[in-house]
Write a protein that binds this DNA or RNA. Structure first.
Lengths: 127, 127
DNA sequence: CAGGATCCCGGGCGATACTG
DNA sequence: CAGTATCGCCCGGGATCCTG
């Protein structure tokens, strides 16, 4: 059971699902976008732009396209002036939130210990 | 409950635990390193070098330092020639494997659907 | 064997300006 | 409003060479 992850990678080096997902999860903005949509439900482009602190227009566009291509969210465009586009998670996208929450919980629980460790490390190196 | 993640971010924008962890998780090599150590137990530098497909010497060094600083693994150095250094996960590092497994399971389960979605998207764009 | 030190390239990403 | 287009910087990270 525990050996499963790396064994998968060894058998199929160029198409390892772990790497593939980690690339997506590790993407600077993807997971934050998913989280925002999970928390707030359907959102328009500018609403996302404001909610995701620090993201640029360009990267929001790119990120949304990627997530749409992956089938994690849907893009609903209204034919009107001014334009209106709504983004919402698909069931697939929603299903990703669960494992993400586990990660978040882990982070929240252990962040103090990690920060403490980092400070200790800094001091040890400073010598 | 579901609102928790983004609310945390809004309250504490510069020190958001989600971003912090995602940065680490998203790091190109960190999680693979953790997985390898979890699967194989204690490993030496070169063993890791061979197990983690594609990693360069430099990045392995950097990654190991980061993980050590975070307290996720320990570095045990033997005073001998030629040198021998062993890396192993700490309990903290081990505890990260659980949420990682959830992510892996999700990936494994849904990768077919994601790939199918990507292909559909490609074709739709090609028009 | 386990890394340190350098050099260097590609592309991720931000800033800005423009458009339907 | 919701993007597209373009420019340019920075740095992640690979390749290579060197050392205790």
């Amino acid at each position: 059971m525990k050996k499963e992850i790396s064994r998968k990678c060894e058998n199929d080096r160029d198409n390892c699902p772990v790497k593939d997902v980690l690339n997506r999860v590790g993407d600077k903005w993807s997971m934050l976008t998913v989280i925002m949509l999970s928390d707030h439900g359907t959102l328009r482009f500018n609403e996302l732009h404001q909610l995701i602190d620090g993201i640029s227009q360009k990267m929001l566009t790119v990120t949304l396209k990627m997530l749409e291509a992956d089938g994690l969210l849907t893009r609903k465009m209204y034919a009107q002036i001014p334009p209106k586009v709504e983004y919402a998670l698909t069931p697939l996208g929603e299903s990703l939130v669960t494992p993400l929450m586990h990660l978040y919980d882990w982070a929240n629980t252990n962040m103090p210990e990690i920060k403490a460790s980092r400070e200790r490390y800094e001091k040890a190196v400073a010598v």
